[in-house]
Design a protein around this nucleic acid. Structure first.
Lengths: 216, 216
DNA sequence: TAGATTGTTAATCGATTAACAATC
DNA sequence: TAGATTGTTAATCGATTAACAATC
């Protein structure tokens, strides 16, 4: 299979596959079936096979998928066979927390620069990175070939920061601020706003309202 | 409209509506149409009308929606007309960052207890809350009627913490650890793992692979 | 009244799942 | 060979969007 357009739902599952495959690899498991994957990841095995088949024939009938080979392929698909440099804008608590994941998420993605608007923050060290003034954003993005920006500034600054990132030539943005950003179509934007997640959870709290289903 | 089962996609948009409506209210805008909402939130107006109509006839033909009334209704739908107590497990950087949003997200959701397994953390103050040992989780959850748990512990501890939260009678979990948790069907689980988000962004980086579309 | 906008049905679009021939 | 499992088509399911009568 080739040259269909891949839906975002599919793309978002690839890192989930990758993560579990890495774990299997670490445990020296060499082969895995879509059924095992599905069980562990709470996904339908047919869906997993279909997802992978968009990108190539990675499995072997009767056998399953070779773990090492599939890891390699998914990393290629996700462009993680090259180092991807990331900028973090906003050196507050959340920004600092994210920068700690630097080692953790490795996988060739790396936060290589941290920016903040506040004079107090500029010059501080965060995980071996020195916080730079926002004014340096354009120059630094170009110099280090930074392609993804993470926004962890307060919501009222988020759009401005996004605009600056886009001006600097960034290709994708992960936005933690609880606001809807406007970006040109060629810039990929993912929202990572946890307040939305948390508030929506409240809907499901039992309440009498609709706690009763037809079981028992 | 009543008594259809509401999809999660719909539920997750409600906090987004609520947030923007709060902003309108602050700006003393009293009425809003689905078209305006759609424009601002990047959603189809028909979808917004349909979403809201699942829960009642909140709008007025020819006029639109009364901002204050709609806020009240959405808050009721999301169970935010009562205070919802939240526990945070994991007082690391991310946990501390989230607890700072306490004031921010208000809306009747409140982190009222913080837990950590490490002796170093226990007893420390985080935003006026004293970090408690995980052993106290069951008792504290019951005493304070805590209904939602946020997990910000390392991935290898996440399942154990989830089990403890569930034992304690929690009804919903927001999981920041990059791992798939197994929870019983009656517990609502949302994943808030930003590494997945970030890795999936890399897929969209221009690369020659599929950078060329039919524009230009 | 004329213009605007809802609530809702029908049409469309897209994503998930089932089923199975191919084949290891 | 018999059993297992893929890749893929067809069926199903669900979500989004268009269209429009009702009505403010």
């Amino acid at each position: 299979m080739k040259s269909e357009k891949i839906s975002d739902a599919v793309v978002r599952r690839l890192p989930v596959y990758l993560r579990f495959l890495n774990e299997l690899s670490f445990r020296e498991v060499s082969t895995v079936s879509s059924q095992e994957l599905g069980q562990k990841l709470d996904l339908n095995p047919a869906q997993i096979r279909k997802d992978l088949a968009y990108f190539g024939d990675f499995g072997r009938k009767g056998i399953g998928y070779d773990v090492a080979y599939l890891i390699e392929k998914i990393r290629q698909i996700l462009n993680l066979d090259q180092q991807i440099n990331v900028a973090l804008v906003g050196a507050g608590n959340l920004g600092q927390a994210l920068s700690n994941y630097n080692t953790y998420l490795k996988d060739n993605m790396k936060i290589v620069a941290v920016f903040d608007a506040s004079e107090k923050k500029v010059g501080q060290k965060i995980n071996s990175l020195t916080v730079q003034p926002i004014e340096d954003l354009g120059a630094t993005v170009k110099r280090f070939n930074i392609r993804i920006g993470i926004i962890t500034v307060p919501d009222f600054e988020a759009q401005r920061v996004a605009d600056q990132l886009i001006d600097a030539g960034i290709e994708a943005i992960l936005n933690f601020a609880p606001t809807i950003l406007k970006v040109p179509a060629e810039v990929r934007l993912h929202a990572a706003d946890f307040t939305t997640d948390l508030l929506s959870l409240a809907y499901y709290l039992g309440d009498g309202k609709e706690a009763l289903t037809n079981e028992s």
